[in-house]
Design a protein around this nucleic acid. Structure first.
Lengths: 194, 194
DNA sequence: CGCAATATTCAACTGTGCTGAATAAAACGC
DNA sequence: GCGTTTTATTCAGCACAGTTGAATATTGCG
C-alpha cells in the first residue's frame, strides 16, 4: 500500500505500541463499529495485515488498546469511613467524581467489549458489594449491600455506560439529590419480613 | 437466489412480518453483529434485498423487529394502573416477569453490542421514563421518575445484561423484597430542597 | 557467518450491507 | 374492464470489511 519496502524494518520501532495508540484514539472517537482496521492501520502508517499479526483480530486490538481499568479505590476507602448517615452521599460523590473525571467524550463505549464488561462485573460483586456489606454489618447486611450495588450499578450504567440523557445531564449535586433517597433506602431500610 | 419467480407474488402474504419475526429470533439468539442480513433473509425464505426495501437498513430491521418485544410490555400498562402505594412492587414484578420469560440460555450476552445498548437506552428514556412521570404527576414527577428509571435500569443491568451473581440468583419475590425500598424511595420520596 | 525467528508489505479471498435494474402482481382511476 | 401507477419481489453486482498466505527484509542467536 504505502511502498515502505517489504520485510522487517531497520531498528526496532515499537510499531505495536504505535498501532495500539492510534487504535485507542480512533475507538474512543468513533466507537467500535465506526473504526475500521484499515483506518487504524492508515493512522499508524502501517499495513492493515499487521494488526491481525500483532493483535490477532479487531476484537483483540480493541481489548488490548483499551486497558482502561475502571476504578481506583481510594475514593471508595474514603466513602467507607465515618457515620452511616452520610454514607449514601459519600458513595454517590465517589462514584460521580471518579467517573466524571474520565475523559470528556464517550470513552464509555469501552464497556461494549465482553472482557471489560466482565471486569466491571467482577468489581461490583467482589469489591464493592463485600466492602459495603462489611461496613454495614448487622443482619441483612448482605441484602442491603446487594440493593445498594444494584442502585449504584444502575447509576453507573444509566449515566456513564449507556447514558440516558436525563441522567447523564445531571450535575453531580443533582445526582446526590435525586438518587440519595433510593440509595439511603437500599442501605438502611429495614427489609420486610421474608 | 431461490428461483422464486421475480416480481410481486400472488395474494398478499405479509412478508414483512415474517421477516421481522425471523429477525427477532436471530437477533435474540446471536446478537446484532452475529446476525447477518442474508441469514435473516434465508430464514424468511426471501431475497436479502427485500429487507433493505422494507426496513431501510439492518439498523432499521433491528429496531423494528425488537420493538415488538419491548412494546410487548402490556405488563407495564398493568403496572401503571392502580394505587401509588403498590406501584413499586408492580413495576418490579413486570420487569422480572418480562425478562425472566426470555429464553433460558444466555441470550443476554447478545445484549452486549452497541446497537442493542442503544435500543435499550431509547426504551428507557423515551418509553419508561415518560410514562412513569405521567403516572406520578405533581411537582418533581420527572425527577422522581428519573431516579426510578435509574433503579430499574440498574436492576436490569446487574441482573440480566451483565449479571452479577448475587443479584441474578435472586428469585423474583426476593427481588421485590430487596429492591422494593429503594424503588419506593425513588418514586415517592420528597426530594430534598434544591 | 549461517540460519531460524520476527516484522513487515502485498495480493487476494470471503463475506457483509446495500443499490439499481428488471419484473410481476396489485390497486386505482375512468 | 382496461391502462396506468404503485408496490413487492428477485437478480446481479458494487464497495468495503476483516482476515489470510506468500514474499521479503531485518534482527538475534549459536
Amino acid at each position: 500500500m504505502l511502498n515502505k519496502t517489504r520485510g522487517r524494518p531497520r531498528g526496532n520501532p515499537d510499531t505495536k505500541a504505535r498501532i495500539a495508540e492510534a487504535a485507542r484514539e480512533l475507538f474512543l472517537a468513533h466507537g467500535y463499529k465506526g473504526t475500521t482496521v484499515r483506518a487504524v492501520a492508515a493512522a499508524a502508517s502501517v499495513d492493515s495485515a499487521l494488526i491481525s499479526y500483532h493483535f490477532g483480530s479487531k476484537q483483540g486490538l480493541f481489548g488490548q488498546s483499551l486497558n482502561l481499568l475502571c476504578v481506583e479505590s481510594t475514593a471508595l476507602d474514603q466513602a467507607l469511613q465515618g457515620d452511616q448517615a452520610g454514607l449514601a452521599d459519600r458513595l454517590l460523590t465517589s462514584v460521580t467524581s471518579l467517573w466524571d473525571a474520565t475523559e470528556p467524550t464517550e470513552n464509555r463505549m469501552a464497556l461494549q467489549d465482553a472482557d471489560t464488561m466482565r471486569a466491571f462485573r467482577d468489581y461490583l460483586e467482589s469489591e464493592l458489594l463485600v466492602r459495603i456489606a462489611e461496613f454495614l454489618g448487622g443482619p441483612d447486611a448482605t441484602e442491603r449491600a446487594t440493593a445498594a450495588v444494584g442502585v449504584i450499578g444502575g447509576l453507573i450504567f444509566t449515566r456513564y455506560l449507556n447514558p440516558i440523557r436525563s441522567i447523564a445531564a445531571l450535575p453531580s449535586a443533582e445526582v446526590r439529590r435525586i438518587f440519595g433517597p433510593a440509595l439511603r433506602a437500599a442501605l438502611h431500610a429495614r427489609v420486610r419480613q421474608r
